[in-house]
């Protein structure tokens, strides 16, 4: 397919390509530079961070900040916990969302409009922190990992978008599967889901990032520090310092800038790596064309 495109290249097209590549590389660089500063800063000394305004390579290289955070077993355990909860939680949330999105994508489903209206309503209005907390408590989920997964299991936004994608899939394959006697669950599993890999990969990523970056849930649902996730520690070191004299005990220096940066890195890089991994699924959507052909 790519070959066809190249054959029809025009001079104007080449100019556009050149401009496009330049612009996107520039945009990519602007996007990544501040991140590289944080990365460089996490390996710099406190003195260098205080005296140099902006740099991409530390003059004096030190891994003290990382040694300091990784020496804490609490932190290491939180790291493992976060990966596990994110993995399991993403799977559960994605399956629940797809299960609900599929029936709703059938435009003749009775009650569909009512359900969709209610879903949209919950997207705009949430009852708030304390009422949700009380429900989670009533369900006996406090201090369990379920509290990090279930209350946000189906994001109305994701549900609506996935539903929309399902709705646009070619109906021929479903019809023929139905004629072969497949039930809806099987159609969903063996026809709809494979065809929707790009969108499912996208929302797997959204859900994973949602769980990974969630700090409110562990904060209010988990009082047992041994169950905490990384965000609890990330927030603690990066939250804007409002430390005025009185807050602190007698002789406590503020958290070192280097430690901040190191925690940001440790808490960000794993989830960043999820994207290139999921990216390959986006290309697989090409399938649709070939199936139809």
């Amino acid at each position: 397919m790519a070959r066809v495109k190249y054959r029809f290249n025009t001079p104007a097209g080449k100019v556009f390509d050149a401009v496009n590549v330049t612009v996107l590389i520039a945009v990519g660089t602007i996007a990544i530079l501040p991140f590289l500063y944080v990365l460089a800063g996490s390996f710099a000394t406190e003195y260098e961070l205080t005296t140099r305004p902006f740099f991409l390579w530390p003059n004096e290289f030190t891994t003290d900040a990382y040694a300091s955070i990784l020496s804490s077993s609490v932190f290491v355990r939180a790291f493992i916990t976060t990966i596990a909860v994110t993995g399991v939680g993403t799977a559960i949330q994605l399956v629940l969302t797809a299960l609900m999105a599929y029936p709703l994508s059938k435009i003749d489903l009775p009650g569909r409009r009512t359900i969709m209206s209610l879903v949209v309503f919950t997207m705009v209005f949430s009852a708030g922190l304390i009422p949700t907390f009380l429900v989670v408590k009533q369900l006996g989920l406090l201090d369990t990992y379920w509290a990090l997964i279930l209350p946000a299991a189906i994001n109305p936004f994701s549900l609506i978008i996935i539903k929309n994608f399902f709705q646009e899939l070619p109906k021929e394959l479903e019809e023929s599967a139905k004629i072969d006697g497949a039930n809806e669950l099987r159609i969903l599993r063996s026809v709809v889901m494979p065809l929707s890999k790009p969108v499912l990969a996208t929302f797997a990523l959204f859900y994973a990032v949602g769980i990974w970056n969630d700090y409110m849930s562990p904060l209010i649902y988990l009082s047992d520090t041994s169950k905490w996730t990384l965000q609890m520690f990330l927030r603690q070191v990066t939250a804007a310092s409002s430390l005025t004299g009185e807050d602190l005990g007698n002789e406590l220096p503020p958290p070192a800038q280097g430690i901040k940066f190191a925690v940001v890195m440790v808490a960000t890089i794993p989830v960043l790596l999820a994207y290139p991994f999921l990216q390959k699924h986006f290309a697989k959507g090409m399938l649709i064309g070939s199936v139809k052909g």
């Binding site: 029936p103 209610l118 429900v135 189906i154 039930n183 669950l185």
Partner: peptide, 27 residues
């Protein structure tokens, strides 16, 4: 046909009732 579809939706509906609508009582 709808039975199957509604069955697939059941977990989702329970989710919305439990975690989205029940807390609204607190609103």
């Amino acid at each position: 046909r709808y039975r199957w579809l509604l069955f697939l939706m059941l977990p989702g509906i329970i989710y919305f009732l439990l975690f989205r609508f029940w807390p609204m009582y607190g609103a």
